[in-house]
Write a protein that binds this DNA or RNA. Sequence first.
DNA 1: CTCTAATGGAATAGGAACGTTCCATTGGAA
DNA 2: TTCCAATGGAACGTTCCTATTCCATTAGAG
Lengths: 245, 245
Amino acid sequence: MSEPISPDADLAGADLALFRAVRTGNAFEETVERLLQAIKLGVVAPGQRLPAERNLAARLNVSRVTLREAIRALGDAGYVESRRGRYGGTFVTMPPAGGLGAEPSVGSAIALEDTLTMRRALEVGAAETAAARSLSPAERRHLRARLAESNESTMVDYRRKDSRLHLAIAEVSASPSLTTAVADVRMRVNTLLDAIPQLAVNIEHSNRQHEAVVGAILDGEPERARHAMAEHLDATAALLRGFLA
Amino acid sequence: MSEPISPDADLAGADLALFRAVRTGNAFEETVERLLQAIKLGVVAPGQRLPAERNLAARLNVSRVTLREAIRALGDAGYVESRRGRYGGTFVTMPPAGGLGAEPSVGSAIALEDTLTMRRALEVGAAETAAARSLSPAERRHLRARLAESNESTMVDYRRKDSRLHLAIAEVSASPSLTTAVADVRMRVNTLLDAIPQLAVNIEHSNRQHEAVVGAILDGEPERARHAMAEHLDATAALLRGFLA
DNA sequence: CTCTAATGGAATAGGAACGTTCCATTGGAA
DNA sequence: TTCCAATGGAACGTTCCTATTCCATTAGAG
């Protein structure tokens, strides 16, 4: 057996957050998670190709062996398909219909509030920051394209288009840290959203709020953007609390 | 030699943030960083003891061997001292006088704006969230204690007390994710602050703004708390931009 | 004074991840 | 048709990290 460890009389309670895990799980699982994130958030759409293994492995700071194991797992789950040869690669197939493979574990109430709190801070901040910048024409187009895409979306892939829009708003804040943080918290939000019914009326409501947020950002009005985003997120939060709390 | 990798024609530019590194550096370096964070942010003050190695290793999800290597490195650098025997442990000594061992690498201008943007979103969000909650007596005391501590601080350890106050505000948002994110970005802010002179007039200014923020939180006024925190952070940001940009 | 529990210190073996090198396949370019 | 560059596929030795076990030291309890 291993050595016994005594019950730890230190730690007033504040350090709980500081002395958290340095490495979460193994490299394989982390890599699978990262790739799933890119797929589920719509960064690589169905039919599109992932970066080549050698490139992607370097990007993720993971060995090619580990990356290949992760891709193999995603292939078995039906998310991607690999083809050899020049102009080959690993392509995203249609997501597994019926939402199989998703864990229905709906975490605790604390996790719910934690996610919603974090999301509010990050996305409201991103909207305000984006509106305070002077956006390039390309950025304005990108934003408008994502907005249109999500407005025209059908219910089946509304989730992905919605995620892509929120991510686009984070992107035009021009802060890489903020963008990755928004992507991370959005994944957590999506697992929550998977557990509640998708109502047409809510989607319409969201679409209108999206218009308001993007409009304020394009008009360069930080206060209005912040307010619109806060309103949007609070509505979604209320919905989630209603179904999950 | 290793295989050549071609120049990567994928990646429209948005995925830069998504396909980031899965594991940053090795476990040893990460552990050192984490412990330094706890020390520099004042979570474990000089004279206080770190959790026992067996406990801490479990918390950090790192083997005891790796943790010990990290502690050894911190010991060599003069940050901690270890004593054996029951009621022994690893204690924080006075921080290395003169700020030795700190890398004066002042990152790029992009990194500066990234840090400041992220900080603004997180800390403003934390202040607003904290003010919207109904705080327990213990939380109110904690907040007031940290405020007093930072007000009375001398210039030599103002940095640590200031960090501790900002962290305390994040803590009373009751969101672990938000707390750790604030701690992380605060470390980045501190490396920036290390590169500029510490002026008494700025400290006085900060103290007044701290009063305003904590006051609004204790009074339960989210709007006022958000505004006060934004003002405080913008002042610091302007200072940093002035010296570093 | 003796015992004991909790701590840091150290050695060993095993596994996970990595870097490197090569092979297999493919579609366009020459 | 031939060639070739870019891709996925696979094997091998090395390094890093872990888990386990034991030792050494210390201050309080009995």
